[in-house]
Design a protein around this nucleic acid. Sequence first.
DNA 1: AATGGGACCTGCGCGC
DNA 2: TGCGCGCAGGTCCCAT
Length: 266
Amino acid sequence: MPELPEVETIKTDLEKIACGQKIVRVLIHNPKVIRQPAPAVFKRSLEGLRIKHIFRRGKLLILELSHGKFLTVHFKMTGQLVAPGGSKNSRVAFVLDGGMILDFNDQRLFGELRLVNDWKKLEFVQRLGPEPFDLTSADFKDMLAKRKTRIKPLLMEQSFISGIGNIYASEILFRAKINPQRQAQSLSPKEQGALYKEMIKVLKSAIKHGGSSVDDYVRVSGKNGDYARFHQVYGRGGKPCFICSRPVERIAQGGRGTYFCAKCQK
DNA sequence: AATGGGACCTGCGCGC
DNA sequence: TGCGCGCAGGTCCCAT
């Protein structure tokens, strides 16, 4: 589910309502989403800790707690953090000392909650590539020039660059006018530059609008993000391109749907 | 290194 | 109404 802009939105929403609060009770409705440590230990260790700071790395949300602990949240496809709680698919509920309940919902149970001492040591984190906003255009060009793989799956590869998923990969490539089937290596300097520029623009704009609510993603308030109305190609297979009116194509790449305009994107 | 397939799960929309 | 199929924001693991 959430990609970088959605996790960043959740981070900002959550900061406002949960920072400084103590987690007084943890109710586990489905232990499957608790990956570390064992659910009973997770619950016992977490109760009584205070939320000090909230941040994001790639698509991972990280809550810094008292006593040097960190709660990491990976939303995968259908994870949500919603307050106040009482949601249908609540898997874990966090009761805060203000009385508010924060639900971790996850229809498909792919999501992952971990309570750790050092989030940076997580294997998943160790493999993450750079944050898009930490890169210069020159860095990004160098990275692209080294890779033979097709550009769209590459943008989604978290060890290459972290935070971009299936929606934004298609949207960024459309705006950069680059065909998703192109080899990364084959991009001209001008195309590399356009890709960098559109990547930053799209991600920033999506954050500004609270992310894209397509299926399950909602903000902490339960309200939808507002960026889906700016989508140019994602989910628009067969519908006319907003630029040239030719039907938007849908192809499969690495088992994922890719949307693009074969006329506008070379 | 690149690419494809399947696995993990639940639920929705579609054609019949 | 019901059934089977394809599809879904992610990541991991295995085979070639």
